[in-house]
Design a binder for these strands. Structure first.
Lengths: 349, 349
DNA sequence: TTTTCATATGAAAACGTTTACATTCGGCCG
DNA sequence: CGGCCGAATGTAAACGTTTTCATATGAAAA
């Protein structure tokens, strides 16, 4: 391995001068700078990141702790983070907690000292967990969390508002008897979506069906609905994958969507527009979530003592055929239509 | 920040003993070990990764350089890598080259000294690029590359074999007039798939239509086909996204798939099973690709002087309704059916 | 009792940077 | 012509670990 000493020796200067020349900072003659740059290039010198981090206390790396890496949601999220990170010259260290609190703790520990800040999204992470496993000196931004924004920077999707708006959307279309497929019991997003549904559907006939965000659970619920003696007019699933599972169960049974039963989801994952009929859903700009979280984190790294912010990201209703809209013109994944925004909630703290 | 010195002072021992106790290695009394562990826990001591890396020459981190992070393919790939990495206690540093050779070089440089090894997949990376930007001391595994396995460890999908098998599959089903939608001109996978198609379709009537792996390009080709005076009996797209774009163009024009025209893709991205009709395609286990690559990398890190291996991953044909199969029972994303494997190619070097 | 030896612990070097401080050098002002 | 100043460069400390080597301690062997 070629180190800064090799470059210094070869260029006939001290290591300090090499460091200065290569970092472009202090006063170095243009001539020596050129000479050093030449030698460094010839030797293929690459500074040792760990050594540099040790003294500068900066790693130029941010960590992202996610519950899982499976599926389109996290793919989009990581992409959003990556875009914002690369714009700032930051590297991205990813890790998944795999639904296990112990693994989450391990990952968190492993990342400390390797990153300048942390993006955290995990159902097991609550205030106590953080106090236990996260050094107060490490800047962090929590996503989709129930943890109060009082002590930590947070960035949440407006789950409540989105679910509320979608429920109103269904009511507006004349559906008066609406079933809601819930998410996992301990999930914050799921709870908020249910809360939004309940608040908006007070006047309607409703029923709750238990799901867990998985496609299978949606399918099971669909089968239940098919077998039930009295079917609701519309089904609102707490996420798209369950809606899709449900859709397949309904279609298999020969029911027509939306004529026999309308359907709506939440997330607007890419698949949503490809199923038949295309799925009405609540769009959360997942990439924007990642991007926003990273920007918040950078702000926190730059000013660790500023009071943490608690941001909330708006959702919008995307009305497609599954809730009664006629099939529109073809639109590919990259030409997303702008739909109407529901009430804005915006900045809270 | 609490360092090893703080722990040592608090526990009344030297830093060396703390290090030994915490790393569990050398001879330390059970009693002192306990005392030190207690103090470390109380102080919430977390070793500084950079400092440790500096002296051990290990970062416990591997880097992955991908062309992009968009879409299901990379999501699956990263997941596969992550699973294998976590099994070995390795962290994962991701970066995307965004289709730009300069960015790829920058990312590559930024990663050196931060990782123990590199997973590289990028169309711009050829032998010359590597010689220029990758230190020979950094172990690396190249994925989906045209670079010879002579000097670098490589892991390729059996694009040729998969395309060959799919073409035979279409011929077996009686389609004698087959169009092929190509991928980008400079893409290695695309070229191999075309080669496989050509080799298998010698006896059939064929035509080539230019695409670029994007859904839009598939849609354009579909429109072309609809307008053409003589349509092929089947269309084989070099990837699923183009097949899906094409499918939408055909359906929009009122054509029935597969009755009027059969369709097949390549990759078996999750969406493939959700479109109507479900898409016949060539499955490459993307997660297995990522997993295999990481395992190869680990082997290379452990034995840098062993000759590099050039592995090839088998594909399998997944026959769904778009090529004439009757609609089967419902299957969710997690219950993937095992289909027949095409001829194995296996280990090459 | 003395010698030997294993075992537990400590002291200090090393890893590759950056940077505060010291030094050199030439030119300018008095 | 001498002292001073600023610019360019060098010296060495510091960052937080691990690890080699040395040392102390006690037990077993003689």
């Amino acid at each position: 391995m070629v180190t800064i000493k090799d470059v210094a020796r070869e260029a006939g200067v001290s290591v300090a001068t090499v460091s200065r020349a290569l970092n472009g900072s202090a006063s170095v003659t243009a001539q020596t700078r050129r000479r050093i740059a030449g030698v460094a290039a010839r030797l293929r010198y690459v500074p040792h990141g760990a050594a540099r981090s040790l003294v500068t206390r900066r790693t130029q790396t941010v960590g992202a702790l996610l519950p899982d890496l499976f599926g389109e949601f996290f793919s989009e999220l990581i992409r959003g983070v990556d875009v914002a990170a690369r714009a700032r010259g930051l590297q991205l260290l990813v890790s998944s907690s795999h639904g296990d609190a112990f693994e989450a703790a391990t990952a968190l520990r492993a990342m400390q000292g390797r990153v300048d800040g942390l993006l955290i999204m995990s159902p097991h992470v609550d205030a106590g967990f953080l106090r236990e496993h996260l050094a107060p000196s490490v800047p962090a931004v929590l996503m989709n969390t129930s943890v109060s924004g009082k002590h930590y920077a947070t960035l949440n999707i407006d789950n409540y508002g989105g679910a509320h708006a979608m429920t109103r959307h269904l009511l507006d279309r004349g559906y008066r008897d609406i079933a809601f497929i819930t998410g996992p019991a301990d999930n914050f997003d799921a709870a908020e979506r249910l809360r939004g549904f309940r608040a908006a559907a007070k006047s309607a006939r409703t029923q709750l069906l238990r799901g867990d965000f998985s496609e299978e659970s949606g399918y099971r619920v669909g089968k239940q609905l098919v077998a039930a003696k009295q079917r609701p007019q519309a089904v609102f699933a707490a996420n798209d994958m369950m809606a899709i599972g449900c859709l397949f169960a309904l279609i298999e049974a020969g029911l027509r969507v939306p004529q026999d039963i309308a359907l709506a989801g939440f997330d607007d994952i890419p698949i949503a527009r490809y199923v038949n009929p295309p799925l009405t859903t609540v769009r959360v700009s997942i990439a924007a979530l990642g991007q926003g979280a990273l920007e918040q984190l950078v702000a926190r790294i730059d000013a660790p003592d500023a009071p943490p912010r608690a941001r909330t990201l708006d959702c919008e209703i995307v009305s497609r055929a599954s809730s009664g809209l006629a099939a529109g013109p073809y639109q590919s994944l990259h030409q997303r239509p702008k739909s109407r925004k529901h009430h804005s909630s915006g900045e809270i703290s």
